[in-house]
Amino acid sequence: MDLNTVVEIRDARHPAPWRPGDAWLGGGTYLFSEPQPHLRRLVDLSRTGWPPVQLHPDGSVEIAATCTIAQLSRFARTLTTEAAPLIERCCRAFLASFKIWNMATVGGNLCNALPAGPMISLTAALDGECLLLAQDGVQRRVRVADFVTGAGHKVLAEGELLRSVTLPARALDCRTAFRQASLYGLGRSGALVIGALDLLDHSLSVTVTAATVRPVRLWFPLPPTARELRTALDSAVADDEWFDDIHGLPAWRRHMTVRFAEEIRRELEGAGTTKAEVTR
């Protein structure tokens, strides 16, 4: 779609004062998908030269905001950590054509802050940390689980930039389980739950996305009982935080989340037969 209110595109490598009507341009798959009448100038990040994905000596993985889904998918195939398959599963959770795969960015998916954003699911589940850059050069770090605060809402200040997301080595060594549900065969995620079992201390995290307006990450020092898990879910998600749109009613999303969380609990504690990913 043409953005006929935009009168200038600026290269992000050449700093200039931020002004009303500016927007960061990564892959552009959202910006060019619908009218943006409030925009006057785009600040293009495509020539920044940031490495898409870096494996650091400590075993952590840093994903640039400009990394495309296709680049992340290719990188995941080179990883040998326990959680490597989860990266590909979340990439495949996109409702996207190959064109979108090669243009859409990890940073864009996080900054859109849509409940069904699978990069939010992935990075929140693996305890990712966002690096944010302000216009005055000040840096701050925010956990992904705290970065998205609601449907379409995030903690970015005016002109602030998401530079990258870092996944810690310990999270990448976790054993993971993945469940996803949609009302349609190729539909947007209505509920997506990820479990991560730390093989060192046997702690368990359960992360809920798509069904809720914000990512909800529960952490247990030891795998919980079914009752403890259900109680924690009920306490963590308020009634008005179950998302409601054409892709699923709140009651259905809640039901699927509770069901998937229990399946994951059983799978990761080894109490039952591993169940395949479910898609409705």
Rank of each mutant, 00 (worst) to 15 (best):
D136S: 10
Q54D: 03
M119Y: 03
V165P: 01
E267I: 00
H153D: 14
V144R: 05
D245I: 07
E62A: 13
P85D: 07
A12C: 06
T66Q: 12
I100P: 04
G21W: 06
L249G: 04
L133Y: 00
A271W: 02
R77G: 04
C91V: 14
A124H: 01
A96L: 11
A157R: 11
L39I: 00
Y184S: 14
C111R: 02
I264V: 13
G26D: 06
T48P: 01
A96E: 09
D234C: 10
D146S: 15
T166V: 14
L162C: 08
G190H: 07
M1E: 04
L233D: 05
G21C: 07
G190T: 11
G152Q: 07
A191I: 03
R10L: 15
E8D: 14
D136E: 10
Q139E: 14
A232Y: 07
H247V: 01
S203N: 06
L249R: 13
Q135Y: 02
T209E: 03
V206K: 04
D234Q: 15
M1D: 00
A211G: 12
G270V: 04
I87E: 05
R41T: 00
T29G: 08
T176W: 03
P20K: 14
V206S: 05
A177D: 13
V106S: 09
S164C: 12
D234A: 15
S46T: 09
R77M: 08
E269S: 15
T279S: 09
R41F: 02
A210C: 07
R141T: 10
A226P: 02
I63A: 06
V213H: 08
V61F: 06
F260K: 01
M103Q: 12
G26V: 00
V142S: 03
V206L: 10
L114T: 04
G152L: 14
V7S: 15
E263F: 02
T80W: 10
L199K: 08
V106Q: 11
P37Q: 11
S60W: 09
V61I: 15
